[in-house]
């Protein structure tokens, strides 16, 4: 079975004397969601533009599904759905027409157009706007249509550049739901994002780019254990309001719990040092204490702390 993949080999892009991307070697394959992190100007969008041949490399090569992006652009992009830089759609087109154009140019059989468009517009919750002109849409609505355009041909590889940009909280939540659903379909989703919570929630793996260089690429748990300086952090949600001090007093709470801070009336963040075994022990103790635990998730702060430490290391 062919697995979806993207690969860069020594990929470098300079703009004058500024090196936006510095010999990036990255191979991502298989059905998974990979978060591509990095501060502004780190080279995330440059990488995505190089993968889609919107810009040319100074050195190196890149591939989508083993097809070279720059020498065989059309074949490479035939197997990819792309959303880069929140593009504008011709304002006189309706979402239906814009997606028809995408399907037509992509060579999708005409008898499949209607069904695919209806499905994908429903996924991005734009069905009610299918026949309205895009020119009148808000930024968030346009972004939904762009996401629909990236997915309408069921691509094995999906490249997304900050897909939640311009969306309201509900829209962001819906994008996450779409991404989670996409993950179930053996597709490779490679998305840049500034939202660590989004990456923590939907991504299986993360790659961090800083000053054009790859700092790391690994699964989320491995990243936390490799770079977390033996620091773990979980967010625990209860079915009733709790006092953090009461949690601290629970019998058997491991000694390596370093901090318990409230996140809301019924949610606390528990930080601990030590191996991931501490997390399992902590969960068992909390459940045994019958405090009404309804949520126990890796805290996004873990990734945030790693992100900040790795970025500052780069500086």
């Amino acid at each position: 079975m062919t697995v979806p993949s993207i690969e860069t080999r020594g990929l470098t892009r300079k703009f004058g004397s500024f090196t936006a991307l510095d010999h990036l070697d990255l191979k991502v394959e298989g059905g998974k969601c990979v978060g591509f992190l990095g501060p502004n100007g780190s080279g995330k969008t440059t990488t995505l533009k190089l993968l889609t041949a919107m810009i040319y490399p100074t050195e190196g090569e890149c591939y989508i599904n083993d097809i070279p992006c720059h020498t065989d652009r059309t074949a490479a992009l035939a197997g990819a759905g792309v959303l880069i830089e929140s593009p504008e759609i011709y304002p006189s087109l309706t979402p239906n027409e814009a997606l028809e154009m995408v399907e037509d140019v992509r060579g999708i059989p005409r008898d499949e157009w209607k069904g695919r468009i209806e499905t994908v517009l429903a996924e991005v919750r734009m069905s009610d706007w299918a026949d309205k002109k895009v020119g009148k849409f808000s930024k968030g609505m346009k972004q939904r249509v762009n996401i629909a355009a990236a997915l309408v041909h069921d691509p094995p590889v999906v490249l997304l550049d900050e897909p939640s940009t311009g969306l309201d909280p509900r829209g962001m939540s819906e994008v996450r739901a779409i991404l989670r659903a996409l993950k179930q379909t053996h597709r490779l989703i490679f998305m840049s994002s500034h939202l660590l919570s989004e990456v923590t929630e939907v991504c299986d793996e993360v790659a961090l780019l800083d000053h054009g260089k790859l700092r790391f690429y690994d699964t989320l748990p491995n990243v936390v254990s490799r770079f977390g300086k033996d620091q773990g952090s979980v967010d625990v949600t209860f079915d009733h309001p709790v006092d953090p001090a009461a949690v601290r007093r629970i019998s058997g709470i491991p000694s390596d719990v370093t901090d318990i801070t409230p996140l809301g009336t019924s949610q606390v963040r528990i930080k601990f040092s030590g191996p991931s075994a501490s997390k399992k022990l902590l969960l068992r103790i909390l459940v045994d204490a019958d405090l009404g635990v309804v949520g126990f998730v890796e805290s996004e702060s873990a990734l945030e702390e790693i992100y900040l430490s790795q970025i500052s290391r780069g500086e």
């Binding site: 079975m1 062919t2 697995v3 979806p4 993949s5 059905g31 599904n65 059309t74 074949a75 992009l77 035939a78 197997g79 140019v105 992509r106 060579g107 999708i108 499905t119 429903a122 996924e123 997915l151 041909h153 069921d154 691509p155 094995p156 590889v157 819906e174 739901a177 779409i178 989670r180 659903a181 996409l182 179930q184 379909t185 053996h186 597709r187």
Partner: peptide, 27 residues
Amino acid sequence: MATISPATTDPVASSLIRFRAPPLLHQ
């Protein structure tokens, strides 16, 4: 809740075969 269509057995191969971009003169 999003309802993405179920996975094909080989999404890369099926996509590349079925949706090969039309030739230049057609596009």
